[in-house]
């Protein structure tokens, strides 16, 4: 993928003036060389015992079984995508309480009381911080704009 990216970058920038093309060309060529070196290491290098390298990052827990992990991953991605759609079509001020409540009630299966309490607290937080203190004007969603 990185080899493809490197080739694409160097090909795209050909038409640009020198000033604009210099940096992307240098970076693109470097990516190309690095990716080729990586590919060579993958093909001919010594196989490592643990293919997942230890990185300076969050450690992903391996205590959950694979099936549960996959289903939870799909669900959280769906929730994120749903929130995105709600934000675009209804606007963030409407999408936020809808997401908080529906996630707590239907995904986490929390009680009505806790779901409503946390949704109310989030609305309060949203109104005080973003609307009242920071005076951010959130655009109405596409659907609301169309309806009005």
């Amino acid at each position: 993928m990185f080899i493809g990216a490197g080739v694409a970058i160097t090909a795209i920038v050909k038409k640009w003036p020198f000033r604009s093309a210099l940096f992307p060309v240098v970076v693109g060529l470097c990516i190309l060389i690095l990716a080729a070196a990586y590919l060579l290491l993958e093909l001919f290098g010594k196989k490592e015992e643990n293919p997942k390298q230890k990185v300076l990052d969050v450690e992903i827990s391996s205590s959950i079984d694979r099936k549960t992990e996959i289903s939870r991953t799909i669900f959280i991605f769906l929730w994120i995508f749903l929130f995105f759609l709600l934000a675009v079509f209804l606007g963030l001020p409407v999408a936020t309480p809808l997401l908080i409540f529906s996630y707590l009630k239907f995904q986490n299966k929390e009680s009505w009381g806790l779901s409503l309490l946390l949704t109310g607290a989030t609305i309060l937080f949203f109104c005080v911080l973003f609307v009242w203190l920071m005076e951010i004007q959130f655009p109405a969603g596409l659907l609301i704009e169309w309806l009005s």
């Binding site: 990185f2 990216a5 970058i9 000033r19 604009s20 940096f23 992307p24 970076v27 693109g28 470097c30 990516i31 690095l34 990716a35 070196a37 990586y38 290491l41 993958e42 290098g45 490592e48 390298q53 230890k54 990185v55 300076l56 990052d57």
Partner: peptide, 27 residues
């Protein structure tokens, strides 16, 4: 941030990707 030769190459490629993303837009 990552161990071994492959880790170094990965890091540099990701850094290069960061460079490319930074120049998106009008020069």
């Amino acid at each position: 941030s990552s161990h071994g030769k492959k880790g170094l190459l990965q890091g540099l490629m990701i850094g290069g990707f960061g460079f490319i993303c930074s120049i998106v837009g009008q020069d």
